[in-house]
Each structure stands twice: as C-alpha cells, then as structure tokens.
C-alpha cells in the first residue's frame, strides 16, 4: 500500500463541514416553512421552536453560510492553495469531449474511461452550480430578511418574485445535493458506503491513478509522490 496523498487541505475540509452543516439546517428550516401546511411541516416547525424559533435558526445558519462563503471567496482570491483549488475547478475545453466519453464508456462503446485531472467535469459543474446557487440564496435571502422594509425599497412584485426564487432555488439545491452529490459520494460504484476523503482529506495513490490519471501523471512529473 503506497502512502495516501493529500487531496483536500484541512481548511478546505473545515469549510466543507461548515457549508454542509449550514445547508442542512437551512434546508430543514426552509422546507418546513415552505411546507408549513403539511403535517410534517407543522411537526418540524414545532421541533424548531415554533415560527419565531424557526426564523431565528434559519437566520443563524444563514450567517454561517454567508461567513463560510466570504471566507471561501477570500481563500480562493488570496491564498495559494485556494487559488490552485479554483484553477483546478475551472472547466477546460477538452472536458466536453471527456464528458461525452463518459457516456460512451458506460454504454460500452469505448473500452477506456476518460482521463480526468484533479476534478471530473461533473465535479466542476457541481462546484459552480453550488457557487451560483449560494449567491442567489444569499442575495434573495437578504431581501427577505429585510421583510416589509424591502417593500419600502422596491416594488412589492419584486419581493414576491424574490420569495419564489428563494424557495425554488432552495428546493433545487436540496434536490441537487440529495440526488446528485450524495449519490456520487456514497452510492456511486466504488464509493459505498462513503468516500472518506471529505474527512481524512486523503486519497490513495491507486485511487488517484484510477480516477484522476492526469493529476497522478502531473504529480509524478513534479515528483510530488515521493518514492
């Protein structure tokens, strides 16, 4: 067994944990309001300390999300690690070809899978999807947080629209994380019951070579793998 190598730094893992904690709380408190007229909605709201408690928890979690988002923004802007992470996430032109290859490979039309660098095209799309989603949620959330004051600043229809966008986008992010992200890190072939790298930050050399061969080659070239 060759030594495992670092895939996610400690601060990246902590950011991820803060992000997922805040999103779980936001989704639970948000959906319980969205479905307040159903039995489980009422049950959830009672667990969350009534309507006022629910609002408070939702806003505290929102502050958590805003905090970690700002941190991540400056992390990618100012730190070397963060900058490299962002660069690794940027989609490349050749990703489109590999994207098509993935389906061809699964359909048995070609014999070898596409060779990904540090992140697959799906992971890149998901990253920017989450970035866009979080920006939308924070901006609309701030408007709704203002409440009636928001209507003093902008026409009521715009606030109504903001509410629809906030609710729908929230539902979208929830379903995306539930169906796509949790599938990929828990149920996808080779990951069951869980891909541990979000906690350990590490990936074995074998796995790196199999899943992200270009990243493996790059590390070999730079002699970052040691012996």
């Amino acid at each position: 067994m060759k030594p495992a190598i670092l895939r996610f730094t400690l601060t990246e893992r902590v950011q991820h944990i803060i992000l997922l904690s805040s999103l779980i709380i936001l989704v639970l408190t948000g959906l319980s309001l969205m479905f307040h007229n159903t039995g489980w909605g009422r049950f959830m709201i009672s667990l969350e300390g009534g309507l006022a408690g629910r609002g408070l928890i939702h806003r505290l979690a929102a502050l958590m999300l805003i905090g970690v988002s700002l941190y991540h923004y400056f992390y990618t802007l100012l730190s070397r690690h963060g900058h490299n992470l962002l660069m690794d996430f940027l989609p490349e032109k050749r990703d489109w070809g590999k994207f098509v290859k993935t389906f061809k490979f699964n359909l048995g039309m070609i014999d070898s899978p596409p060779e990904w660098s540090k992140f697959t095209f799906f992971q890149k799309l998901q990253y920017f999807g989450v970035v866009a989603g979080v920006i939308i949620m924070i901006l609309t959330g701030i408007v709704l947080w203002l409440g009636p004051q928001a209507i003093a600043l902008m026409p009521k229809w715009l606030v109504d629209l903001t509410l629809v966008v906030h609710g729908s986008e929230g539902l979208l992010i929830f379903l995306l994380l539930l169906f796509w992200h949790l599938y990929n890190v828990h149920l996808a072939p080779g990951n069951f019951p869980m891909n541990m790298s979000w906690l350990t930050g590490r990936i074995s050399v074998d796995e790196l070579r199999n899943r992200y061969p270009l990243e493996y080659k790059r590390m070999v070239e730079r002699k970052e793998l040691g012996e």
């Binding site: 009636p148 004051q149 209507i151 003093a152 600043l153 902008m154 026409p155 009521k156 229809w157 715009l158 606030v159 109504d160």
Partner: peptide, 9 residues
C-alpha cells in the same frame, strides 16, 4: 415605512 411600493404588486 410603507410607501407606494406596497401597491406595486
């Protein structure tokens, strides 16, 4: 602080 905006919607 209700303004005319309240009627715009």
């Amino acid at each position: 602080d209700a303004s005319a905006n309240f009627a715009k919607g």
